[in-house]
Design a protein around this nucleic acid. Sequence first.
DNA 1: CAATATTGGAAAGTGATACTCTCCAAAAGT
DNA 2: ACTTTTGGAGAGTATCACTTTCCAATATTG
Lengths: 215, 215
Amino acid sequence: MWIAELSQRTEVPVATIKYYLREGLLEPGESVGATRSRYDESHIRRLRLIRALVESGGLSLARVRSVLAEVDEESHELHEVLGAVHGALIPNDLTATDESRRRVDALVAQYGWLVYSESQDRVLLAASLDALEKVGYHLDDDLLEAYASAAAQVADAEVSHLPSGDRQQTVEDTVVVTALGGPVLLALRRLAQQDASARRYGISPTTAACAVQAE
Amino acid sequence: MWIAELSQRTEVPVATIKYYLREGLLEPGESVGATRSRYDESHIRRLRLIRALVESGGLSLARVRSVLAEVDEESHELHEVLGAVHGALIPNDLTATDESRRRVDALVAQYGWLVYSESQDRVLLAASLDALEKVGYHLDDDLLEAYASAAAQVADAEVSHLPSGDRQQTVEDTVVVTALGGPVLLALRRLAQQDASARRYGISPTTAACAVQAE
DNA sequence: CAATATTGGAAAGTGATACTCTCCAAAAGT
DNA sequence: ACTTTTGGAGAGTATCACTTTCCAATATTG
Protein backbone atom coordinates (compact mmCIF):
# COMPACT_ATOMS: atom_id res chain seq x y z
CA MET A 1 0.00 0.00 0.00
CA TRP A 2 1.07 3.63 -0.47
CA ILE A 3 1.46 6.14 2.30
CA ALA A 4 -2.05 7.51 1.73
CA GLU A 5 -3.64 4.17 2.52
CA LEU A 6 -1.37 3.67 5.53
CA SER A 7 -2.55 7.05 6.74
CA GLN A 8 -6.23 6.25 6.17
CA ARG A 9 -6.16 2.87 7.84
CA THR A 10 -4.34 4.11 10.95
CA GLU A 11 -5.96 7.55 11.08
CA VAL A 12 -2.52 9.09 11.37
CA PRO A 13 -1.92 12.11 9.08
CA VAL A 14 0.55 11.61 6.26
CA ALA A 15 2.68 14.46 7.61
CA THR A 16 2.91 12.69 10.95
CA ILE A 17 3.91 9.42 9.31
CA LYS A 18 6.65 11.24 7.42
CA TYR A 19 7.74 12.76 10.70
CA TYR A 20 7.91 9.34 12.38
CA LEU A 21 9.91 8.04 9.42
CA ARG A 22 12.37 10.91 9.76
CA GLU A 23 12.62 10.28 13.49
CA GLY A 24 13.33 6.62 12.89
CA LEU A 25 10.25 5.42 14.79
CA LEU A 26 8.90 3.71 11.70
CA GLU A 27 10.86 1.60 9.22
CA PRO A 28 11.02 3.09 5.73
CA GLY A 29 8.79 1.32 3.24
CA GLU A 30 10.13 -0.64 0.32
CA SER A 31 11.38 1.98 -2.11
CA VAL A 32 9.70 1.74 -5.51
CA GLY A 33 11.30 4.29 -7.80
CA ALA A 34 12.44 7.67 -6.56
CA THR A 35 9.11 9.03 -5.38
CA ARG A 36 7.22 6.05 -4.05
CA SER A 37 7.50 3.46 -1.30
CA ARG A 38 5.35 0.52 -0.51
CA TYR A 39 4.19 -0.15 3.07
CA ASP A 40 2.67 -3.31 4.53
CA GLU A 41 0.78 -4.67 7.51
CA SER A 42 3.86 -4.47 9.71
CA HIS A 43 3.80 -0.69 9.27
CA ILE A 44 0.16 -0.60 10.29
CA ARG A 45 0.90 -2.60 13.43
CA ARG A 46 3.89 -0.49 14.30
CA LEU A 47 2.03 2.75 13.75
CA ARG A 48 -0.88 1.62 15.92
CA LEU A 49 1.57 0.60 18.63
CA ILE A 50 3.29 3.97 18.53
CA ARG A 51 -0.01 5.84 18.78
CA ALA A 52 -1.21 3.67 21.64
CA LEU A 53 2.01 4.22 23.60
CA VAL A 54 1.89 7.95 22.98
CA GLU A 55 -1.82 8.65 23.36
CA SER A 56 -2.85 6.15 26.01
CA GLY A 57 0.44 5.26 27.63
CA GLY A 58 1.49 8.89 27.76
CA LEU A 59 5.02 8.12 26.57
CA SER A 60 7.23 10.67 24.90
CA LEU A 61 8.49 9.83 21.43
CA ALA A 62 11.97 9.41 22.90
CA ARG A 63 10.68 6.69 25.21
CA VAL A 64 8.70 5.08 22.44
CA ARG A 65 11.90 4.95 20.42
CA SER A 66 13.75 3.20 23.26
CA VAL A 67 10.92 0.74 23.77
CA LEU A 68 10.70 -0.10 20.07
CA ALA A 69 14.45 -0.64 19.95
CA GLU A 70 14.01 -3.36 22.59
CA VAL A 71 11.04 -4.86 20.78
CA ASP A 72 13.17 -5.19 17.67
CA GLU A 73 16.18 -6.68 19.43
CA GLU A 74 15.48 -10.22 18.29
CA SER A 75 18.30 -11.73 20.33
CA HIS A 76 16.77 -10.84 23.70
CA GLU A 77 14.87 -13.35 25.77
CA LEU A 78 11.44 -12.35 26.98
CA HIS A 79 12.58 -11.74 30.52
CA GLU A 80 15.34 -9.47 29.27
CA VAL A 81 12.87 -7.59 27.11
CA LEU A 82 10.66 -6.89 30.10
CA GLY A 83 13.58 -5.44 32.02
CA ALA A 84 14.71 -3.43 29.03
CA VAL A 85 11.22 -2.09 28.42
CA HIS A 86 10.99 -1.07 32.05
CA GLY A 87 14.36 0.61 31.67
CA ALA A 88 13.16 2.45 28.59
CA LEU A 89 10.05 3.63 30.43
CA ILE A 90 11.92 5.04 33.38
CA PRO A 91 13.15 8.61 33.84
CA ASN A 92 16.91 8.72 33.71
CA ASP A 93 17.72 11.36 36.31
CA LEU A 94 16.49 9.43 39.31
CA THR A 95 17.82 9.99 42.79
CA ALA A 96 16.58 8.64 46.09
CA THR A 97 17.65 8.81 49.72
CA ASP A 98 19.47 5.83 51.19
CA GLU A 99 16.67 5.45 53.68
CA SER A 100 14.02 4.91 51.02
CA ARG A 101 16.33 2.66 49.05
CA ARG A 102 16.76 0.47 52.12
CA ARG A 103 13.02 0.44 52.67
CA VAL A 104 12.48 -0.72 49.10
CA ASP A 105 15.19 -3.37 49.36
CA ALA A 106 13.63 -4.65 52.56
CA LEU A 107 10.23 -4.85 50.92
CA VAL A 108 11.58 -6.70 47.91
CA ALA A 109 13.34 -9.11 50.23
CA GLN A 110 10.24 -9.57 52.36
CA TYR A 111 8.18 -10.55 49.33
CA GLY A 112 11.04 -12.66 47.99
CA TRP A 113 10.86 -10.90 44.67
CA LEU A 114 13.52 -11.90 42.18
CA VAL A 115 14.55 -8.46 41.04
CA TYR A 116 18.00 -7.35 39.95
CA SER A 117 19.62 -5.38 42.73
CA GLU A 118 20.47 -2.63 40.26
CA SER A 119 16.95 -2.45 38.80
CA GLN A 120 16.06 1.17 38.22
CA ASP A 121 12.53 0.39 39.32
CA ARG A 122 13.87 0.06 42.85
CA VAL A 123 15.19 3.60 42.63
CA LEU A 124 11.96 4.81 41.04
CA LEU A 125 9.95 3.43 43.94
CA ALA A 126 12.37 4.88 46.47
CA ALA A 127 12.15 8.26 44.74
CA SER A 128 8.35 8.10 44.86
CA LEU A 129 8.46 7.41 48.58
CA ASP A 130 10.83 10.35 49.00
CA ALA A 131 8.42 12.58 47.12
CA LEU A 132 5.67 11.64 49.56
CA GLU A 133 7.91 12.34 52.56
CA LYS A 134 8.84 15.69 51.07
CA VAL A 135 5.22 16.87 51.20
CA GLY A 136 4.99 15.66 54.76
CA TYR A 137 3.08 12.48 54.02
CA HIS A 138 4.56 9.30 55.41
CA LEU A 139 3.43 6.10 53.74
CA ASP A 140 2.79 3.65 56.57
CA ASP A 141 4.37 0.24 56.32
CA ASP A 142 1.00 -1.47 56.23
CA LEU A 143 -0.26 0.79 53.45
CA LEU A 144 2.95 0.12 51.54
CA GLU A 145 2.37 -3.58 51.99
CA ALA A 146 -1.19 -3.21 50.76
CA TYR A 147 0.21 -1.61 47.61
CA ALA A 148 2.81 -4.33 47.28
CA SER A 149 0.43 -7.25 47.62
CA ALA A 150 -1.99 -5.65 45.17
CA ALA A 151 0.91 -5.08 42.78
CA ALA A 152 1.96 -8.71 43.13
CA GLN A 153 -1.54 -9.92 42.31
CA VAL A 154 -1.78 -7.72 39.27
CA ALA A 155 1.66 -8.62 37.98
CA ASP A 156 1.06 -12.36 38.40
CA ALA A 157 -2.21 -12.12 36.52
CA GLU A 158 -0.63 -10.02 33.77
CA VAL A 159 2.35 -12.26 33.23
CA SER A 160 0.31 -15.44 33.33
CA HIS A 161 -1.99 -13.98 30.66
CA LEU A 162 0.81 -13.30 28.20
CA PRO A 163 0.57 -15.59 25.19
CA SER A 164 3.30 -18.15 24.70
CA GLY A 165 3.21 -18.06 20.90
CA ASP A 166 5.71 -16.39 18.62
CA ARG A 167 8.23 -14.02 20.05
CA GLN A 168 7.15 -10.91 18.15
CA GLN A 169 3.56 -11.24 19.36
CA THR A 170 4.53 -11.94 22.96
CA VAL A 171 7.00 -9.08 23.08
CA GLU A 172 4.47 -6.64 21.69
CA ASP A 173 1.87 -7.84 24.16
CA THR A 174 4.37 -7.42 26.96
CA VAL A 175 4.96 -3.84 25.93
CA VAL A 176 1.28 -3.13 25.53
CA VAL A 177 0.35 -4.62 28.90
CA THR A 178 3.18 -2.86 30.68
CA ALA A 179 2.48 0.54 29.19
CA LEU A 180 -1.32 0.46 28.86
CA GLY A 181 -2.16 -1.72 31.84
CA GLY A 182 -1.03 1.09 34.13
CA PRO A 183 -3.79 3.49 33.07
CA VAL A 184 -6.36 0.68 33.42
CA LEU A 185 -5.20 -0.10 36.94
CA LEU A 186 -5.16 3.56 37.92
CA ALA A 187 -8.63 4.17 36.54
CA LEU A 188 -9.98 1.21 38.48
CA ARG A 189 -8.22 2.40 41.59
CA ARG A 190 -9.97 5.72 41.32
CA LEU A 191 -13.36 4.12 40.86
CA ALA A 192 -12.62 1.98 43.91
CA GLN A 193 -11.48 5.07 45.81
CA GLN A 194 -14.79 6.73 45.08
CA ASP A 195 -16.56 3.70 46.46
CA ALA A 196 -14.35 3.52 49.54
CA SER A 197 -14.80 7.23 50.11
CA ALA A 198 -18.58 6.99 49.71
CA ARG A 199 -18.68 4.21 52.28
CA ARG A 200 -16.39 5.90 54.76
CA TYR A 201 -17.68 9.44 54.57
CA GLY A 202 -21.27 8.50 53.97
CA ILE A 203 -23.34 9.43 50.98
CA SER A 204 -26.25 11.75 50.75
CA PRO A 205 -29.62 10.44 49.48
CA THR A 206 -29.11 12.00 46.03
CA THR A 207 -25.65 10.52 45.80
CA ALA A 208 -26.97 7.09 46.67
CA ALA A 209 -29.66 7.45 44.03
CA CYS A 210 -27.04 8.20 41.41
CA ALA A 211 -24.94 5.26 42.43
CA VAL A 212 -27.83 2.82 42.49
CA GLN A 213 -29.17 4.11 39.23
CA ALA A 214 -25.80 3.28 37.72
CA GLU A 215 -26.02 -0.39 38.56
CA MET B 1 9.88 35.44 55.62
CA TRP B 2 10.82 37.15 52.36
CA ILE B 3 10.71 35.54 48.97
CA ALA B 4 14.42 34.67 49.11
CA GLU B 5 13.93 32.48 52.18
CA LEU B 6 10.81 30.89 50.69
CA SER B 7 12.91 30.03 47.68
CA GLN B 8 15.77 28.60 49.74
CA ARG B 9 13.58 26.47 51.97
CA THR B 10 11.62 24.97 49.10
CA GLU B 11 14.48 24.83 46.59
CA VAL B 12 12.25 26.55 44.06
CA PRO B 13 13.93 29.45 42.18
CA VAL B 14 12.63 32.92 42.94
CA ALA B 15 11.76 33.39 39.27
CA THR B 16 9.60 30.28 39.38
CA ILE B 17 7.85 31.43 42.55
CA LYS B 18 7.08 34.74 40.88
CA TYR B 19 5.75 32.80 37.90
CA TYR B 20 3.48 30.71 40.11
CA LEU B 21 2.26 33.91 41.79
CA ARG B 22 1.45 35.39 38.38
CA GLU B 23 -0.31 32.20 37.37
CA GLY B 24 -2.39 32.25 40.53
CA LEU B 25 -1.07 28.92 41.80
CA LEU B 26 0.30 30.53 44.93
CA GLU B 27 -1.43 33.10 47.09
CA PRO B 28 0.33 36.47 47.18
CA GLY B 29 2.17 37.13 50.42
CA GLU B 30 1.12 39.81 52.85
CA SER B 31 2.11 43.05 51.20
CA VAL B 32 4.50 45.10 53.33
CA GLY B 33 5.08 48.37 51.57
CA ALA B 34 5.32 48.63 47.82
CA THR B 35 8.30 46.38 47.22
CA ARG B 36 8.04 43.66 49.82
CA SER B 37 5.71 40.85 50.82
CA ARG B 38 5.86 38.51 53.72
CA TYR B 39 5.32 34.78 53.21
CA ASP B 40 4.61 32.12 55.83
CA GLU B 41 4.52 28.37 56.41
CA SER B 42 1.35 28.02 54.36
CA HIS B 43 3.29 29.22 51.32
CA ILE B 44 5.98 26.63 51.98
CA ARG B 45 3.37 23.88 52.21
CA ARG B 46 1.61 25.01 49.08
CA LEU B 47 4.82 25.31 47.12
CA ARG B 48 5.93 21.84 48.17
CA LEU B 49 2.55 20.47 47.21
CA ILE B 50 2.72 22.10 43.79
CA ARG B 51 6.20 20.73 43.11
CA ALA B 52 5.22 17.24 44.25
CA LEU B 53 2.17 17.21 41.98
CA VAL B 54 4.20 18.49 39.04
CA GLU B 55 7.44 16.57 39.49
CA SER B 56 6.25 13.29 40.94
CA GLY B 57 2.60 13.25 40.01
CA GLY B 58 3.36 14.41 36.49
CA LEU B 59 0.51 16.92 36.49
CA SER B 60 0.43 19.97 34.25
CA LEU B 61 0.16 23.35 35.94
CA ALA B 62 -3.37 23.63 34.57
CA ARG B 63 -4.36 20.44 36.43
CA VAL B 64 -2.53 21.56 39.54
CA ARG B 65 -4.55 24.75 39.42
CA SER B 66 -7.83 22.81 39.21
CA VAL B 67 -6.80 20.51 42.05
CA LEU B 68 -5.77 23.40 44.29
CA ALA B 69 -9.05 25.14 43.58
CA GLU B 70 -10.83 22.10 45.04
CA VAL B 71 -8.48 21.92 48.00
CA ASP B 72 -9.33 25.52 48.82
CA GLU B 73 -13.08 25.11 48.42
CA GLU B 74 -13.78 24.99 52.16
CA SER B 75 -17.46 24.24 51.71
CA HIS B 76 -16.90 20.85 50.13
CA GLU B 77 -17.21 17.63 52.06
CA LEU B 78 -14.35 15.18 51.84
CA HIS B 79 -16.20 12.84 49.56
CA GLU B 80 -16.98 15.69 47.19
CA VAL B 81 -13.37 16.77 47.23
CA LEU B 82 -12.23 13.32 46.17
CA GLY B 83 -14.60 13.35 43.23
CA ALA B 84 -13.61 16.88 42.30
CA VAL B 85 -9.92 16.04 42.52
CA HIS B 86 -10.46 13.03 40.30
CA GLY B 87 -12.32 15.29 37.89
CA ALA B 88 -9.45 17.76 37.91
CA LEU B 89 -6.97 14.98 37.20
CA ILE B 90 -8.83 13.60 34.23
CA PRO B 91 -8.33 14.54 30.57
CA ASN B 92 -11.35 16.42 29.31
CA ASP B 93 -11.66 15.12 25.76
CA LEU B 94 -12.53 11.54 26.63
CA THR B 95 -14.49 9.28 24.32
CA ALA B 96 -15.19 5.59 24.61
CA THR B 97 -17.19 3.00 22.70
CA ASP B 98 -20.54 1.95 24.09
CA GLU B 99 -19.25 -1.58 24.36
CA SER B 100 -16.43 -0.62 26.72
CA ARG B 101 -18.74 1.66 28.67
CA ARG B 102 -21.13 -1.24 29.22
CA ARG B 103 -18.24 -3.44 30.26
CA VAL B 104 -17.17 -0.88 32.82
CA ASP B 105 -20.71 -0.40 34.11
CA ALA B 106 -21.08 -4.15 34.48
CA LEU B 107 -17.83 -4.36 36.41
CA VAL B 108 -18.82 -1.52 38.73
CA ALA B 109 -22.16 -3.20 39.33
CA GLN B 110 -20.51 -6.58 39.91
CA TYR B 111 -18.29 -5.13 42.62
CA GLY B 112 -21.17 -3.12 44.02
CA TRP B 113 -19.11 0.04 43.86
CA LEU B 114 -20.92 3.21 44.81
CA VAL B 115 -19.79 5.39 41.96
CA TYR B 116 -21.74 8.18 40.29
CA SER B 117 -23.10 6.94 37.00
CA GLU B 118 -21.69 10.02 35.30
CA SER B 119 -18.23 9.70 36.87
CA GLN B 120 -15.64 10.54 34.27
CA ASP B 121 -13.46 7.79 35.69
CA ARG B 122 -15.88 5.30 34.14
CA VAL B 123 -15.24 6.85 30.74
CA LEU B 124 -11.51 6.97 31.38
CA LEU B 125 -11.45 3.26 32.11
CA ALA B 126 -13.59 2.51 29.06
CA ALA B 127 -11.27 4.61 26.91
CA SER B 128 -8.27 2.70 28.25
CA LEU B 129 -9.91 -0.59 27.36
CA ASP B 130 -10.62 0.76 23.88
CA ALA B 131 -6.98 1.73 23.48
CA LEU B 132 -5.96 -1.83 24.26
CA GLU B 133 -8.44 -3.22 21.74
CA LYS B 134 -7.15 -0.81 19.14
CA VAL B 135 -3.68 -2.33 19.28
CA GLY B 136 -5.24 -5.77 19.00
CA TYR B 137 -4.90 -6.68 22.65
CA HIS B 138 -8.06 -7.87 24.35
CA LEU B 139 -8.08 -7.64 28.13
CA ASP B 140 -9.62 -10.88 29.36
CA ASP B 141 -12.42 -10.66 31.86
CA ASP B 142 -10.43 -12.51 34.47
CA LEU B 143 -7.44 -10.21 34.04
CA LEU B 144 -9.75 -7.23 34.28
CA GLU B 145 -11.15 -8.65 37.49
CA ALA B 146 -7.66 -9.18 38.83
CA TYR B 147 -7.02 -5.48 38.22
CA ALA B 148 -10.33 -4.57 39.84
CA SER B 149 -9.84 -6.58 43.00
CA ALA B 150 -6.30 -5.26 43.37
CA ALA B 151 -7.62 -1.74 42.87
CA ALA B 152 -10.29 -2.32 45.50
CA GLN B 153 -7.71 -3.52 48.02
CA VAL B 154 -5.48 -0.54 47.38
CA ALA B 155 -8.30 1.97 47.54
CA ASP B 156 -9.67 0.54 50.78
CA ALA B 157 -6.26 0.69 52.38
CA GLU B 158 -5.66 4.22 51.13
CA VAL B 159 -8.98 5.60 52.29
CA SER B 160 -8.80 3.90 55.67
CA HIS B 161 -5.35 5.43 56.20
CA LEU B 162 -6.51 8.98 55.66
CA PRO B 163 -6.37 10.98 58.89
CA SER B 164 -9.62 12.14 60.39
CA GLY B 165 -8.21 15.36 61.83
CA ASP B 166 -8.73 18.85 60.51
CA ARG B 167 -10.16 19.29 57.05
CA GLN B 168 -7.22 21.09 55.49
CA GLN B 169 -4.84 18.29 56.46
CA THR B 170 -7.16 15.52 55.32
CA VAL B 171 -7.90 17.16 52.02
CA GLU B 172 -4.24 17.68 51.29
CA ASP B 173 -3.48 14.10 52.21
CA THR B 174 -6.27 12.96 49.92
CA VAL B 175 -4.76 14.89 47.05
CA VAL B 176 -1.28 13.64 47.81
CA VAL B 177 -2.33 10.00 48.08
CA THR B 178 -4.43 10.18 44.93
CA ALA B 179 -1.78 11.86 42.83
CA LEU B 180 1.40 10.34 44.25
CA GLY B 181 0.07 6.93 45.24
CA GLY B 182 -0.29 6.10 41.56
CA PRO B 183 3.44 6.22 40.84
CA VAL B 184 4.13 4.14 43.95
CA LEU B 185 1.65 1.49 42.88
CA LEU B 186 2.99 1.44 39.33
CA ALA B 187 6.59 1.13 40.48
CA LEU B 188 5.66 -1.79 42.74
CA ARG B 189 3.75 -3.38 39.90
CA ARG B 190 6.83 -3.27 37.74
CA LEU B 191 9.01 -4.80 40.42
CA ALA B 192 6.40 -7.52 40.83
CA GLN B 193 6.28 -7.97 37.05
CA GLN B 194 10.02 -8.54 37.02
CA ASP B 195 9.60 -11.18 39.68
CA ALA B 196 6.71 -12.85 37.88
CA SER B 197 8.61 -12.77 34.62
CA ALA B 198 11.74 -14.22 36.24
CA ARG B 199 9.68 -17.06 37.67
CA ARG B 200 7.77 -17.77 34.48
CA TYR B 201 10.55 -17.47 31.96
CA GLY B 202 13.25 -18.84 34.20
CA ILE B 203 16.35 -17.05 35.26
CA SER B 204 19.93 -17.74 34.40
CA PRO B 205 22.48 -18.44 37.18
CA THR B 206 23.93 -14.92 36.94
CA THR B 207 20.48 -13.42 37.09
CA ALA B 208 19.64 -15.44 40.17
CA ALA B 209 22.88 -14.32 41.78
CA CYS B 210 21.94 -10.69 41.26
CA ALA B 211 18.50 -11.21 42.70
CA VAL B 212 19.71 -13.09 45.74
CA GLN B 213 22.49 -10.64 46.36
CA ALA B 214 19.86 -7.95 46.50
CA GLU B 215 18.02 -9.55 49.34
C1' DC C 1 -0.31 13.43 -24.53
C1' DA C 2 -1.57 16.98 -21.41
C1' DA C 3 -3.43 18.07 -17.02
C1' DT C 4 -3.78 16.81 -12.41
C1' DA C 5 -2.49 14.36 -8.26
C1' DT C 6 0.71 11.99 -5.27
C1' DT C 7 5.10 10.96 -3.37
C1' DG C 8 9.63 11.29 -0.78
C1' DG C 9 12.39 14.40 1.29
C1' DA C 10 13.84 18.39 3.74
C1' DA C 11 13.37 22.83 5.92
C1' DA C 12 10.81 25.99 8.24
C1' DG C 13 6.84 27.21 10.98
C1' DT C 14 3.42 26.46 14.88
C1' DG C 15 1.27 26.12 19.40
C1' DA C 16 1.47 24.59 23.92
C1' DT C 17 3.98 24.31 28.22
C1' DA C 18 6.92 25.72 31.81
C1' DC C 19 9.80 28.22 32.93
C1' DT C 20 13.89 31.95 32.91
C1' DC C 21 15.75 36.39 32.04
C1' DT C 22 15.92 41.29 31.93
C1' DC C 23 14.40 45.64 33.51
C1' DC C 24 12.82 48.97 36.51
C1' DA C 25 12.00 51.97 40.29
C1' DA C 26 10.97 51.67 45.11
C1' DA C 27 12.53 50.40 49.33
C1' DA C 28 15.69 48.10 52.97
C1' DG C 29 19.82 47.04 54.97
C1' DT C 30 24.80 48.54 56.15
C1' DA D 1 25.59 57.16 50.40
C1' DC D 2 25.71 52.76 48.51
C1' DT D 3 24.71 48.05 47.69
C1' DT D 4 21.08 44.58 47.74
C1' DT D 5 16.49 42.93 47.47
C1' DT D 6 11.85 43.17 46.06
C1' DG D 7 7.43 43.26 43.26
C1' DG D 8 5.86 43.50 38.91
C1' DA D 9 5.67 43.03 34.07
C1' DG D 10 7.22 41.77 29.59
C1' DA D 11 10.09 39.36 26.66
C1' DG D 12 12.95 35.47 25.76
C1' DT D 13 14.07 30.40 25.81
C1' DA D 14 13.91 25.33 25.43
C1' DT D 15 11.48 21.29 24.44
C1' DC D 16 8.08 18.64 22.31
C1' DA D 17 5.19 16.94 18.77
C1' DC D 18 3.72 17.90 15.19
C1' DT D 19 2.20 20.71 10.69
C1' DT D 20 3.06 23.43 6.76
C1' DT D 21 5.36 24.55 2.76
C1' DC D 22 8.13 23.63 -0.86
C1' DC D 23 10.26 20.90 -4.50
C1' DA D 24 11.10 17.96 -8.35
C1' DA D 25 10.06 13.35 -9.75
C1' DT D 26 6.78 10.38 -10.96
C1' DA D 27 1.74 8.28 -11.54
C1' DT D 28 -2.72 8.55 -12.80
C1' DT D 29 -6.49 10.24 -15.42
C1' DG D 30 -9.08 12.15 -19.28
